[in-house]
Design a binder for these strands. Structure first.
Length: 329
DNA sequence: GTGCCTAAGAGTTTCAGATC
DNA sequence: GATCTGAAACTCTTAGGCAC
């Protein structure tokens, strides 16, 4: 392996001069810098990250504890987030282990900061190891349900936008496909907002307004929609808790020969480009993944630079109207 | 054999000082 | 003042020496 000492020997300068030249220090003559860069290129020099982090006390790596790799919206977000962090000079390490196991690994690898997805924040069992966290921690989602720095979307407001949009189109029998049970505060806040906004607008709210599901994946959406279509008087519009659930709804509708939006208007949470490419270009509420990724990356950078800082950042959602929602026939 | 302590080593950055 | 050098420092692991 080529080190700065090898380059120094070849260039006939000290290794501290090589270090400064490669870092662009203005106290090194331009011609010396050029010569050192040329030799470094010739010798195939690659900086030793371990040694560099020894001095800087920074690894340049950010650990992300991710809930699952199976959900479309999350894949979209992780891709954008990785781009944003790379642009700021960080390497991303992703863990889909239990939170406590992930924290242990990230401590070992000396992450500069760790991002935790709010899905985990209600699970006290998994959070038992969080006290041993040696890096700044940022939680995405579930603001108010934990004491850590947070970036969160105003999910309740997003669902309110969806309810208002459908009400304006004349729908009064609207269902929400979400998960009322369990310990995920990010889902609970959406359901509470749905019920509150529906009551405020004088819409019909009953036991069938919330479609109970086991998880947030396509299959869960399919099973719930199947049950809904079997009711004697199914709703004319549905708000879905996420893109994968929406896929499940479309599959169930297709199998029954139902059309979206003619027979059922659909509005989905998750403001991601993928919504444009579903069976029906889908009306979506939320914050764009690009904006979320950019804000998270900036917040992580801030936490690394000022580790004592406590951040709470709320993002306001928008509605993007597409052809999956229409006026009640 | 076990336990404890100390020194060395890894590659890089950065500060203080030397040279021109 | 510009440019460069030398040495210390960073953290952790491993090896060697010593006492029991």
């Amino acid at each position: 392996m080529v080190t700065i000492k090898d380059i120094a020997k070849r260039a006939g300068v000290s290794f501290s001069t090589v270090s400064k030249a490669l870092l662009g220090n203005p106290n090194i003559k331009a011609v010396t810098k050029e010569r050192i860069w040329e030799i470094a290129r010739e010798m195939g020099y690659q900086p030793n990250i371990a040694a560099r982090s020894l001095v800087s006390r920074k690894s340049g790596a950010i650990g992300i504890i991710w809930p699952t790799v199976e959900r479309g919206a999350l894949s979209s977000l992780i891709t954008k987030l990785n781009d944003e962090l790379e642009r700021r000079g960080y390497t991303t390490l992703l863990s889909i282990s239990r939170t406590d196991a992930a924290i242990e690994s990230f401590n070992r690898y000396r992450m500069d900061a760790v991002l935790l997805f709010g899905d985990h924040s209600g699970n006290r069992d998994e959070l038992s190891g969080i006290g041993s966290m040696q890096s700044p921690l940022l939680v995405y989602g579930a603001a108010g349900s934990h004491p850590f720095s947070t970036v969160d979307v105003n999910r309740g407001q997003a669902i309110r936008l969806a309810v208002r949009h459908l009400a304006e189109l004349g729908h009064s029998r609207i269902a929400y496909l979400g998960r009322p049970d369990g310990d995920d505060p990010m889902q609970t806040v959406k359901i509470e907002a749905f019920l509150d906004e529906a009551r405020t607008l004088g819409l019909r709210v009953d036991d069938e307004s919330i479609l109970r599901i086991e998880g947030l994946e396509t299959h869960d959406g399919y099973i719930a929609a199947e049950a809904m279509f079997g009711w004697p008087s199914p709703p004319t519009a549905v708000i879905s808790g996420g893109v994968d659930l929406t896929r499940g709804i479309y599959r169930a509708a297709r199998e029954r020969g139902l059309r979206v939006p003619e027979d059922l208007s659909v509005v989905s949470y998750d403001n991601i480009p993928l919504m444009e490419d579903l069976d029906v270009p889908t009306t979506a509420v939320g914050v764009s993944v690009h904006a979320i990724a950019s804000v998270i990356a900036e917040a992580l950078h801030k936490l690394i630079e000022m580790s004592d800082e406590q951040l709470t950042i709320a993002l306001e959602p928008e509605i993007v109207v597409r052809s999956s929602s229409t006026r009640l026939q």
